[in-house]
Design a protein around this nucleic acid. Structure first.
Length: 491
RNA sequence: GGUCUCGUGGCCGAGCGGCUAGGCAGAGGUCUGCAAAACCUCGUACAGCGGUUCGAAUCCGCUCGAGACCUCCA
């Protein structure tokens, strides 16, 4: 079956779904804003990365040659609206009595581990901000040369007012420069900026900064937004296909990236801007400052007090895939439990599929079923609908197993390849095997079930149930079917 | 205060003008020594009030409620 590629993507720039047309036939350039590594990423951070992992996977699955760039922010200087420099990495470093890069290294190791745990494909490259100081300086110089920035006292600021005479500031977030002024609540008079909406491209160093770089304007640190412009330009060019990130980065971060690109190269860097929605806890965004967060590791280990049991990374991923990437998702114990059961039902059906009896007839249409899988995923990556579709297949499979429906060998093959592909390659789930790889265990189980069978034939229910109960206590489930008993073990 | 998003059955969560996803939980049934699993049947939900329409959860207006961004944030 040919993979249809009539993909549509919701573009934050236009606020609607658009047919996806890559700049270069068959090739896609995608940049996603990665983590700032001053602490361990929490589950909310992971949701964005997992969603873009799914998007990356589906693009690959459709046969695109994708270059996926996701940065790592390891330079700390960020300037808030009041003009104060906030060095979150330096702050964490001082708290922990170590150097900034040591902090970043430490949390990057954890982040890489989490990527593996949650089965995320590694991006094509994960460039760091500190590794691209020169590139950032060059872009700032370009913006200065274009007359869209100014130097004050060793710092460089982007000139939003002049910029908005030539380009549209607020094109992504829908903000108007005139309105912005009135919106601002507190304005610090100490500001070096000419206009409050101006933002730092380069910030003069403070004496106690832990990271300082040389620049044409003196020692200092790059502004927050410039690293993404520098790295996306370096690895994907001035114009590429998709730029993604969390919804909370839409303004000001992405808006300023657009301004920097227009201000240096003269054009919006990406054709499609995609934003993944937030992970909520009790209706509120998970965030550090609210303290309502938990760590990806804690959920797997069951060490958070929020949930009374651990959940496997597959269940977490499956749970996330049951919601659309543009919707908020509430993390609750009930929802997670429901996802766990659903995930098990789906994977059990998939495991059952190869052993299904084949008929001359079909009770369902496998072709149109498969086509629907592609259709819904190509409609702005609608994973919840894909999962609903997968459950339709699960029902068919179980019915065939019960002798209540039929499936031809051809349909079986189509179902098998399609389901496996969508479950493992696209959704990024791994199928947890029932049987151990240890042939010894299989043999032992064979003996145990044989003994139990004898007991059952003698109607010795006490022995039969004892074996079943004890195995259950050991995490092994025995199911009695028409053709004898089968077993499965919880990992 | 400004900009924007959202309110769907017990819970989670799709759909976004007619054909009323899906999962979990619940009820009944089939199967079974019992159980588990699986399958079948069952809930007619779309915040409220108006309006547009032959027809609205889906479009428009108002009201109420929740949230996001405007400071760092995935």
């Amino acid at each position: 079956m040919n993979k249809p590629r009539n993909l549509t993507i919701y573009n934050s720039l236009s606020g609607q779904k658009e047919p996806f047309k890559p700049l270069h036939e068959n090739r896609v350039g995608m940049y996603v804003c990665g983590p700032t590594l001053y602490s361990e990423p929490h589950m909310g951070n992971m949701r964005t990365f997992i969603n873009f992992d799914m998007i990356y996977r589906y693009l690959l699955f459709l046969g695109y040659d994708v270059k996926y760039v996701r940065n790592i922010t390891d330079a700390g200087h960020i300037t808030n609206s009041a003009g104060e420099a906030v060095d979150s990495i330096g702050k964490a470093a001082k708290l922990e009595q170590v150097q900034s890069l040591e902090i970043v290294y430490k949390y990057n190791v954890k982040f890489q581990e989490l990527q593996r745990l949650y089965n995320m494909l590694p991006p094509s490259i994960e460039p760091t901000a500190t590794g691209h100081i020169q590139e950032q300086i060059e872009i700032i110089e370009q913006i200065l040369a274009n007359g869209l920035a100014y130097v004050v006292n060793g710092s460089v600021y982007f000139d939003v007012k002049t910029y908005s005479e030539r380009f549209e500031y607020g094109i992504l977030s829908g903000r108007k420069v005139d309105e912005l002024e009135e919106e601002t609540r507190t304005l610090n008079a100490q500001d070096e900026k000419r206009f409050f909406a101006d933002f730092a491209l380069w910030k003069k160093a403070n004496p106690d900064d832990m990271q300082i770089w040389r620049s044409p304007w003196g020692d200092g640190n790059p502004g927050w937004h410039i690293e993404c412009t520098a790295m996306s330009t370096k690895y994907l060019g001035a114009k590429f296909d998709i730029h993604g990130g969390g919804l909370d980065l839409k303004f000001p971060h992405h808006e300023d990236e657009i301004a920097q690109s227009c201000g240096s190269a003269g054009e919006n860097p990406a054709n499609y801007w995609m934003h993944a929605n937030m992970l909520n806890v009790n209706g509120q965004k998970m965030s550090k400052s609210l303290g309502n967060y938990f760590l990806p590791k804690e959920i797997i280990e069951g060490s958070t007090t929020v949930f009374d049991k651990p959940y496997s990374p597959n269940v977490i991923r499956f749970f996330m895939m049951q919601a659309h990437y543009r919707s908020t998702l509430d993390f609750t114990s009930d929802a997670l439990n429901a996802a766990e059961k659903g995930y098990n039902r789906l994977t059990e059906a998939l495991k059952l599929l190869p052993s299904l009896p084949e008929s001359a007839e079909n009770s369902h249409d496998a072709e149109s079923w498969a086509a629907e899988c592609y259709r819904v995923m190509s409609d702005d990556f609608n994973t919840p609908m894909l999962i609903a579709q997968l459950f339709e297949a699960a029902k068919w499979i179980n019915s065939v197993n019960d002798g209540k429906a039929s499936m031809t060998a051809e349909s079986k093959q189509l179902l098998l390849t399609t389901m496996q592909a969508f479950v493992t390659q696209v959704l990024g789930l791994t199928i947890e095997e029932n049987r151990s790889n240890d042939g010894l265990v299989d043999k032992v189980m064979e003996v145990v079930l044989e003994l139990r069978k004898t007991a059952r034939e003698n109607k010795d229910w006490a022995s039969s149930d004892k074996i079943r109960d004890h195995l259950a206590a050991a995490g092994i489930t025995v199911k009695d079917g028409k053709d004898g008993a089968t077993w499965s073990a919880q990992p």
